[in-house]
Amino acid sequence: MKKILIRLLIFAGCFFILDKAFLLVRNSAPEREVDRRLEKIVTGNIKSDVLIYGSSRGARSVIAKVFTDSLGISAYNLSFPGSDITFHEYLLRLTLETKGNKKPKTVILVVDDSDELKVSKSLKFRLDRMYPLVKYKAIREELVRRKEKKPILNELFVIHQLNKSNFLFKQKKFTKNDSIMPCGSMPISHQKKSFNKMYKKVPYNYSRDAELIQKIRALRAFKDHCKKNNIELIVAIPPNFRVVTNGFASRLNQVMDGYATIWVYDQKNPLYSNPDYFFDNAHLQTNGSYVYTNELVKFYREKHNL
């Protein structure tokens, strides 16, 4: 018995030392990322007055630079393709909690008509965006909070903080669909082959079926962060290649107790039913994004009498 206990102790000691070598893997991971926006939040480098949160619709449709060019207001897009409201809520919380970030005056939440509150295969909490940044304590704490990692092991072992994606040592590159402007926006300048160009003129009626309580809570929490910090909240419904879902805006308004301004684009504008302005049925392409952002800026200017 004594022999095995001694051997186990020596092995554990050696293993503990070996584990610390993985700090190199952990700390070098952010360098391989091309999208450094999340790191900007964690390191307290967000200094804009207008922040845009959302999924791919937010990333593609709103070009933050237009705010700066038209109104002289600094704006930055923190929308992540494939992310859901739980992730947006986390990003806003992280932005507000991290020392060094400037508290924004306005937050624009770009929502998905009409999946924002529903079960969705394509929208999720983007854990894959967090693992490259596990060198930052705030990220590690969130992973533990979300039960992705175990608290004791997380404190004891560097290797437990990692994920298999940390062992892909390839430098990531921009792709045709994912390139980021300095303002954080990600417009696309081509059209998807499978884009069905039949514009749907008959609106769907919003149904609460398949709404997820976690997403409703996250949207409420998003609103609460803004309210608590006295931040103006605009919820923008961007164009799909169809008319806006009936009752979706009022459902959002109901969930947010009327705190946010729900803004819907001008549905009478014929450009929004022109397929040349779309990447696919759910996303604008660059020319459409400029049209849409200019309209949003106009709304913002009027709202603030600028």
């Binding site: 050696c14 293993f15 584990d19 993985f22 290797i159 437990h160 994920n163």
Partner: peptide, 16 residues
């Protein structure tokens, strides 16, 4: 021991 360590590292990294 290096081989055992490799297995343990794989287990700990992937035990989320």
């Amino acid at each position: 021991w290096v081989f055992y360590s490799f297995l343990i590292i794989c287990v700990i990294v992937l035990s989320g």
